[in-house]
Amino acid sequence: MSGIALSRLAQERKAWRKDHPFGFVAVPTKNPDGTMNLMNWECAIPGKKGTPWEGGLFKLRMLFKDDYPSSPPKCKFEPPLFHPNVYPSGTVCLSILEEDKDWRPAITIKQILLGIQELLNEPNIQDPAQAEAYTIYCQNRVEYEKRVRAQAKKFAPS
């Protein structure tokens, strides 16, 4: 494992614990031996107030490669969400998460999670990743928002 990646992720964890947006979660997972795995984080993004996503808490896994922060983490909703920019596998399609697009090593975990929260309610229809959600979003916004509200209710924190 890269010392650069681990040191950056340790800084990220410290900064997150000191200050993070209300309702968001970002925690490194534990290895079988109980030690912390900084390369694999369990996160959760709350649906934004005043949107059909409100009330939901959407679980996301963030996986970092050894060359982080040169390369972005892979962000994957578990379980996958109904959304035009979420692949059926759950992987998020967002330009700041793509090395050859808008990724920059200075982007923080907090910025990534806030960017994904923004994307939930403002899909990028130029870059669809899920045919069904994309089609319904474009053709029947009322039905799309109904499905999103049902999903938010399903993923409401207990």
Rank of each mutant, 00 (worst) to 15 (best):
residue 2 S to T: 11
residue 3 G to W: 12
residue 5 A to H: 15
residue 6 L to D: 07
residue 6 L to S: 07
residue 7 S to T: 11
residue 7 S to F: 02
residue 8 R to W: 04
residue 9 L to D: 15
residue 9 L to K: 08
residue 10 A to D: 00
residue 11 Q to C: 14
residue 14 K to E: 03
residue 15 A to M: 06
residue 17 R to K: 10
residue 17 R to V: 00
residue 18 K to E: 05
residue 18 K to H: 08
residue 19 D to V: 07
residue 19 D to N: 07
residue 19 D to K: 06
residue 20 H to N: 00
residue 21 P to H: 05
residue 22 F to I: 01
residue 22 F to E: 01
residue 26 A to P: 00
residue 27 V to S: 08
residue 27 V to Q: 01
residue 27 V to T: 03
residue 27 V to A: 06
residue 28 P to M: 05
residue 30 K to P: 09
residue 32 P to C: 09
residue 33 D to P: 02
residue 33 D to Y: 03
residue 38 L to S: 01
residue 39 M to L: 10
residue 40 N to L: 13
residue 41 W to K: 06
residue 42 E to R: 10
residue 42 E to S: 11
residue 42 E to K: 12
residue 42 E to I: 03
residue 43 C to I: 02
residue 44 A to G: 14
residue 44 A to T: 09
residue 45 I to M: 13
residue 46 P to Q: 04
residue 47 G to L: 01
residue 50 G to F: 11
residue 50 G to V: 08
residue 51 T to H: 07
residue 52 P to Y: 11
residue 53 W to L: 00
residue 54 E to K: 08
residue 54 E to M: 12
residue 54 E to Y: 07
residue 55 G to K: 09
residue 56 G to F: 00
residue 56 G to A: 05
residue 61 R to S: 12
residue 61 R to H: 10
residue 61 R to I: 09
residue 62 M to K: 05
residue 62 M to S: 04
residue 64 F to G: 03
residue 64 F to H: 03
residue 65 K to Y: 09
residue 66 D to I: 10
residue 67 D to S: 13
residue 68 Y to W: 07
residue 68 Y to I: 02
residue 68 Y to F: 09
residue 69 P to V: 05
residue 69 P to K: 06
residue 70 S to N: 14
residue 71 S to D: 15
residue 71 S to Y: 10
residue 71 S to G: 15
residue 71 S to A: 15
residue 71 S to P: 07
residue 72 P to K: 05
residue 73 P to G: 01
residue 73 P to R: 03
residue 75 C to G: 11
residue 75 C to W: 06
residue 76 K to N: 15
residue 77 F to W: 01
residue 78 E to C: 07
residue 79 P to W: 14
residue 80 P to V: 07
residue 80 P to S: 10
residue 81 L to F: 07
residue 81 L to G: 04
residue 82 F to M: 05
residue 82 F to K: 01
residue 82 F to G: 04
residue 83 H to Q: 03
residue 83 H to F: 06
residue 84 P to N: 13
residue 84 P to W: 04
residue 85 N to T: 00
residue 85 N to Y: 00
residue 86 V to R: 02
residue 87 Y to M: 08
residue 87 Y to I: 08
residue 88 P to N: 08
residue 88 P to A: 14
residue 90 G to K: 03
residue 91 T to W: 14
residue 92 V to E: 00
residue 93 C to P: 00
residue 93 C to H: 04
residue 95 S to V: 03
residue 96 I to S: 13
residue 97 L to N: 01
residue 98 E to C: 06
residue 98 E to M: 13
residue 99 E to K: 11
residue 99 E to C: 13
residue 101 K to T: 13
residue 101 K to E: 12
residue 102 D to Q: 00
residue 102 D to C: 11
residue 104 R to E: 06
residue 104 R to Q: 04
residue 105 P to D: 01
residue 106 A to R: 01
residue 106 A to F: 01
residue 106 A to L: 08
residue 107 I to W: 01
residue 108 T to Q: 15
residue 108 T to C: 14
residue 110 K to R: 12
residue 110 K to G: 05
residue 111 Q to G: 15
residue 111 Q to S: 15
residue 113 L to I: 12
residue 114 L to P: 14
residue 114 L to D: 09
residue 114 L to T: 12
residue 115 G to R: 00
residue 115 G to A: 06
residue 116 I to M: 14
residue 122 E to D: 13
residue 122 E to R: 11
residue 123 P to G: 00
residue 123 P to A: 06
residue 123 P to D: 01
residue 124 N to F: 08
residue 125 I to E: 06
residue 126 Q to R: 14
residue 127 D to I: 00
residue 129 A to C: 04
residue 129 A to P: 04
residue 129 A to R: 03
residue 130 Q to K: 04
residue 133 A to R: 04
residue 133 A to Q: 03
residue 134 Y to I: 07
residue 136 I to H: 07
residue 136 I to W: 13
residue 136 I to L: 10
residue 137 Y to W: 00
residue 137 Y to S: 03
residue 137 Y to C: 04
residue 140 N to P: 11
residue 140 N to M: 05
residue 140 N to G: 03
residue 141 R to C: 11
residue 143 E to D: 11
residue 144 Y to M: 00
residue 145 E to K: 08
residue 145 E to G: 06
residue 147 R to V: 11
residue 148 V to L: 06
residue 148 V to H: 01
residue 151 Q to D: 04
residue 152 A to D: 00
residue 153 K to Q: 09
residue 153 K to V: 03
residue 153 K to H: 08
residue 154 K to M: 09
residue 155 F to G: 07
residue 155 F to Y: 12
residue 155 F to Q: 14
residue 156 A to S: 10
residue 156 A to H: 12
residue 156 A to D: 15
residue 157 P to A: 13
residue 158 S to P: 13
residue 158 S to M: 14
